[in-house]
Design a protein around this nucleic acid. Structure first.
Lengths: 230, 230
DNA sequence: GCAACAGTTCGGCGCTCCCCGAACCATGCC
DNA sequence: GGCATGGTTCGGGGAGCGCCGAACTGTTGC
């Protein structure tokens, strides 16, 4: 037996409906309270509390206590990437069934339009922005993803973003979108773009989930800065 | 509940010591018989048979029956990538403990030197070859991985490899090495390099696991073609 | 101080799951 | 045909796990 224990233990963290629901919810990159997650997953607070403790002990989540609230969030980009990989493979393997009720259907279609995925933008919006950056020559996509020199100046001039030295996080990473089945931009670039978009009100969060909505200012900005029609 | 069932079910496939051991063993990309896997994981044949059926039904493995043997192998690169991601995160999260006995220790050190990882080379050999290709300018590593024009001609001239058109597999992909903790080259390029190395006897498989050994011809070839000292 | 609220701990119920041994089928060899 | 071998099916035992309700701790607000 080589090192299977670790693999099995890690996988076991996700091998439960409730914990999986927590992880998918937390993919929006924000901090949730224990109660919110319990309601979201449809379990009692006591159950949620126990399962959260397990995820934290497994190193997947970090907690932050404020008063009588327990906020949890994903521990880091690696954890988010792993969940993303699992979810992507899972939906890839077994075709997902259509939603059962109207409320769910509305939520899903809003998320399909535009949403956050951990710390970057996804959905049709995310894919459109990625395509636009590639079309503008800011990112080169042949044989892998790479930021071009043009892209680096664009990042500095437009978003005020320069790569922090000494970090190990890749500047750009491909993240497979599970609604569009197409890759979009993640990594430090994706995170910077998403942060700027939220900060300058190009997009606004709607509801309690991952869905976001493009504002009129956002439509204009994306058109002007990237030539992207969203 | 969005689509957590799929995620949980997929993760559950790995959330067992025996099945995890099977998956790690099959990462060498070869086909194993049910009995070999049973002995490898230290379980009875009946147990192995049941667990294998489960992995196959989950779409992770494919089977091929020959006479009284049941050969199984990983279903494809996506499956291998997922296992790789899980294993990489698992060993990253919890520091692995040193081996218990000599036999195990010998095997591990051989695998640390050079081994296959699904269909490409890994271990110190894999990292050294990746570094050499980057140093020679065949692959560009700043801000993502990409094959350079020089690299494309090198692939065609040296390995006789040109990218098959219409395939969706990325030409080059980064795969995190779990012994070296450093990325090395995977994707179609990694597969072609590994296949050529095995075919031209630059490396030879040793034992029944993933470990390989560099032959004298291999040492010479790697030096000459890539300037890599292994 | 008291009530409302968020969260935790604990005992227990029920279910699943992993594993094995025994019996059974199929193939290959003598 | 007889026998060894690889693999499968089936029944059962034992352990673990997920969930809940009830009781409890700690915080916030009146």
């Amino acid at each position: 037996m080589p090192q299977p224990p670790q693999l099995a233990e890690t996988a076991a963290l996700f091998a439960d409906r409730t914990r999986a629901a927590f992880c998918l919810a937390l993919l929006d990159g924000r901090a949730w309270t224990a109660g919110e997650l319990a309601r979201h997953a449809g379990v009692r607070p006591s159950t949620a509390s126990e399962q959260l403790s397990r995820l934290i002990e497994g190193g997947l989540l970090t907690e932050e206590r404020q008063g009588r609230h327990r906020y949890v969030r994903l521990a880091g980009p690696e954890a988010a990437g792993l969940i993303e990989a699992l979810a992507s493979y899972a939906t890839h393997a077994s075709n997902t069934q259509p939603p059962q009720n109207l409320r769910e259907s509305v939520r899903l279609s809003a998320e399909a339009r535009a949403r956050t995925c951990y710390d970057h933008l996804a959905g049709r919006l995310g894919v459109a922005l990625s395509d636009a950056m590639i079309a503008r020559g800011l990112v080169a996509a042949e044989d892998g993803l790479a930021v071009t020199p043009d892209g680096r100046t664009w990042l500095a001039d437009t978003l005020g973003f320069t790569r922090p030295p000494g970090t190990r996080r890749p500047l750009v990473r491909s993240c497979l979108d599970w609604t569009e089945r197409r890759p979009h931009l993640a990594g430090a670039l994706g995170a910077a773009l998403c942060a700027t978009a939220l900060e300058r009100q190009w997009v606004r969060r709607v509801g309690s989930g991952r869905a976001v909505k493009v504002t009129p200012e956002g439509t204009e900005a994306f058109q002007e800065l990237l030539g992207a029609t969203v």
